[in-house]
């Protein structure tokens, strides 16, 4: 474990906590894309298949349980909870996210480390996570004004993978491992997708103005 990876995991955890706070505090999930939440639940369920087979550390297992349970809980909340489900912007959240799933399956079947059940599912989860934020970014552009907690949620979600890239660079130079090119490539694409959001987030923070994404 190095400081970059710990910072990445804590930032990721913080983004989940901010999202839970937003839904709990405002009793609303307006501005949140259910499709992105469903994609993230799928990412965690397919990446953490080893939860019960490979024990790496208490930290690793606890964080996996936290990410899986929080993402599933948020999807359940947005789909079935009588109060919050009514606040979901169903007509704005229209991204055809099953296309992202389909493309990720094809990519994982074509490009993977080893053709094993575990590695193909792992590659699928990496590709899917790289694009999972798209429905959320599209929803933010459509819904115009972005409430603070939602903006912070997206910001921390984007920042975590940037820390992971620093972690891979660090491990490249300090350990005799190198990270899979799949992680590098998908990690860069994932972080790049946030680039314009980061720009508008910084501008709104600098001008102390409401976060506005151009339509």
């Amino acid at each position: 474990m190095n400081i970059f990876r710990l910072a990445g995991d804590m930032t990721h955890l913080f983004s989940v906590l901010v999202l839970l706070l937003k839904i709990y505090a405002t009793k609303s999930c307006s501005g949140i894309s259910l499709k992105t939440q469903e994609l993230y639940a799928l990412v965690f369920l397919t990446r953490y298949l080893d939860l019960f087979t490979d024990f790496i550390s208490v930290y690793n297992s606890v964080m996996k349980v936290v990410f899986i349970s929080s993402s599933v809980a948020i999807v359940w909340c947005m789909r079935y909870h009588p109060l919050t489900r009514r606040t979901y912007d169903k007509d704005l959240d229209t991204f055809r996210h099953y296309i992202l799933v389909g493309v990720s399956i094809i990519l994982a079947l074509l490009f993977h480390d080893r053709f094993t059940f575990r590695e193909v599912f792992w590659a699928f989860s990496i590709y899917l996570e790289a694009v999972a934020i798209l429905p959320q970014l599209v929803l933010l552009q459509r819904s115009g004004n972005v409430d603070n907690l939602t903006g912070q949620y997206v910001f921390f979600l984007g920042a975590y993978r940037a820390f992971y890239i620093l972690n891979w660079i660090y491990r490249y130079f300090t350990e005799n491992h190198y990270s899979r090119w799949i992680s590098w490539l998908a990690g860069f694409v994932q972080t790049a997708l946030y680039a314009d959001f980061f720009y508008y987030y910084f501008v709104s923070w600098k001008n102390n103005a409401k976060l506005q994404l151009p339509a």
């Binding site: 995991d9 690793n60 992971y164 491992h177 990270s179 899979r180």
Partner: peptide, 10 residues
């Protein structure tokens, strides 16, 4: 060092 990073990350 040809071995790839183990799946020890989240």
């Amino acid at each position: 060092w040809n071995h790839v990073l183990p799946h020890d990350e989240l």
